[in-house]
């Protein structure tokens, strides 16, 4: 009987620890939603910032983030998908394949600020792009590349081998087989992975800090060589660098909420699509 009681206590401790995580996550989201909601109106979302961001809206930051993320996806999606196709469909065991895998794992572990340093060294200085959308997008694309490769590989591996064999046995070439009989069934999963990548790219601050982000730039960019504001950096600036940080509290919460919403919408879409396609394609 005694043993049972002590087991029960331990069970409850474990349960409390697990739910504490849930509570904290809920608390963060709740806090930001409640305090940010009053700011969430058209003037704020569609307006330009005034007085170094203490008044007005955050349109340039939203647009900047959209540009950066689109650029990053434009580079990382094809690269990542092609890498995954090579790894699942063509690669044979050997040194080259091991090296690629090692590189992907390494890339996934590189600290985001190091991506920033690297992006600055390569794109901003070496290529002479200056702090610009193109430098920031490339830097972000390298950062999300492993995410896209790994989830694309999963999507390809989920297509049964029998479809490949069936096609090859009919005399299709390897590429015909992949193009006509593998990719159509793997594409939804591959795009789901890239949505996760988008979510990550939209929320990252450190890589854009040194490559593109502008402190205060109340206009929209006119070319890919322009600097832009970006939501996560804008939040950082308002919260820590602003001379009247306390006064602009509603602006901070509003920005945090918009950023959180964008990232969570992308993530939840990806999670939903993933379970949808898993159910749809049961082989």
């Amino acid at each position: 009987m005694n043993k049972n009681i002590s087991e029960n206590i331990i069970y409850w401790l474990i349960r409390i620890a697990a739910y504490l995580i849930v509570f904290v996550v809920g608390y963060i989201v709740f806090d930001i939603v409640i305090k940010g909601l009053p700011k969430l109106n058209m003037d704020f979302i569609m307006g330009f910032p005034r007085r170094s961001g203490s008044e007005g809206g955050i349109l340039p930051a939203i647009v900047g983030t959209i540009y950066l993320v689109s650029g990053a996806i434009l580079v990382a999606l094809p690269l990542g998908m092609f890498s995954a196709i090579y790894l699942t469909e063509y690669a044979r065991q050997g040194r080259f394949t091991r090296m690629i895998r090692l590189a992907i794992v390494t890339l996934a572990g590189v600290p985001s600020i190091v991506f920033g340093l690297f992006g600055m060294g390569l794109f901003v200085i070496f290529f002479g792009f200056g702090a610009s959308i193109i430098a920031g997008s490339f830097t972000l694309s390298f950062m999300i590349l492993p995410t896209i490769i790994v989830s694309s590989e999963e999507a390809l591996q989920a297509v049964p081998q029998s479809l490949r064999e069936g096609s090859l046995a009919l005399g299709a070439t390897q590429w015909q087989t992949i193009y006509k009989n593998v990719l159509p069934y793997a594409l939804p999963g591959m795009f789901t992975g890239s949505i996760l990548g988008i979510g990550r790219a939209a929320g990252e601050t450190a890589p854009i800090l040194l490559t593109v982000a502008a402190f205060y730039l109340p206009r929209l960019p006119s070319s890919i060589f322009d600097q832009v504001m970006a939501l996560p950096y804008h939040l950082y600036v308002l919260a820590t660098q602003h001379p009247e940080a306390d006064k602009v509290l509603p602006m901070q919460y509003g920005t945090a909420l918009v950023l959180l919403l964008i990232v969570l919408i992308f993530n939840l879409t990806a999670i939903f699509l993933r379970s949808y396609f898993r159910k749809k394609y049961k082989w």
Binding site: I21, V25, I28, V29, I32, G199, A202, G203, E204, T205, A206, P232, Y233, L235, Y236, A256, L259, L260, V263, L264, F266, N267, L268, I271
Partner: peptide
């Protein structure tokens, strides 16, 4: 847990 993984570090 997935939401937590998605919250940007700046947030």
């Amino acid at each position: 847990i997935e939401i937590l993984a998605g919250i940007p570090s700046v947030v």
